[in-house]
Design a protein around this nucleic acid. Structure first.
Length: 139
DNA sequence: GCCAACGTTGGC
DNA sequence: GCCAACGTTGGC
C-alpha cells in the first residue's frame, strides 16, 4: 500500500465534482516527475485530494481504481499517462496548507518542499497524521 | 493582482 | 551543453 497526494484547482475540478461523478480520470498531467508518480500508483493505493489556489488544503480521501494507462487526451504523444481515482470519504474538516506548514512532523512533505509538483508520494506516517488532522481517526 | 519558483524552449 | 527568455503554477 502506497500513499499519494494529488492537487486540483477546485474551480477547475474540485472535490464536489469528484463526488458527483463518483470517479475521475486523472488526465492532463504534463510533468515528468508527476507522470512517474502516476505510473507508480497501484490499485487500491490511498490518495489525499488537495485543493490548490482557492480553499487551499486537503479535503478528502480517494483511492486508485485503475492503474496508469496512456492519456487519451494526448493520443499522439505517448509520454503521458492517466490513472483513475474514486472517492473514499471527505475529511470531517479541511486540513489547510497553513496548518500543514505549521506542523513540524510534516516539514518534509513534498507539498512543502516542491510546491509546484501536482502528484506526489506521501509517507504512511504523514498520511495518517493528515487524516487525523482532518478528524478521520481510522483511515 | 503580484511575484517567486521552476520547468521548458530555443539560440548560440 | 549552457543559459536567457518565457510560460505556468500556486501561495499570498
Amino acid at each position: 500500500m502506497n500513499y499519494w497526494l494529488v492537487k486540483s484547482e477546485p474551480d477547475v475540478y474540485g472535490w464536489t465534482h469528484f463526488i458527483e461523478q463518483g470517479k475521475a480520470v486523472w488526465d492532463g498531467v504534463r510533468n515528468y516527475q508527476a507522470r512517474n508518480n502516476l505510473k507508480a500508483m497501484q490499485l487500491g493505493d490511498q490518495v489525499l485530494f488537495y485543493h490548490s489556489v482557492t480553499n487551499i488544503g486537503v479535503v478528502g480521501l480517494a483511492k486508485v481504481s485503475k492503474e496508469a494507462y496512456p492519456d487519451p487526451t494526448s493520443p499522439d504523444d505517448l509520454r503521458w499517462v492517466v490513472v483513475e481515482l474514486e472517492p473514499v470519504m471527505a475529511l470531517d474538516k479541511l486540513v489547510p496548507l497553513s496548518q500543514i506548514k505549521a506542523e513540524p512532523l510534516l516539514e518534509n512533505l513534498s507539498l512543502i518542499r516542491q510546491s509546484r509538483l501536482s502528484v506526489m508520494p506521501v509517507r504512511a506516517d504523514e498520511f495518517e497524521l493528515i487524516l487525523k488532522m482532518g478528524q478521520i481517526s481510522n483511515g
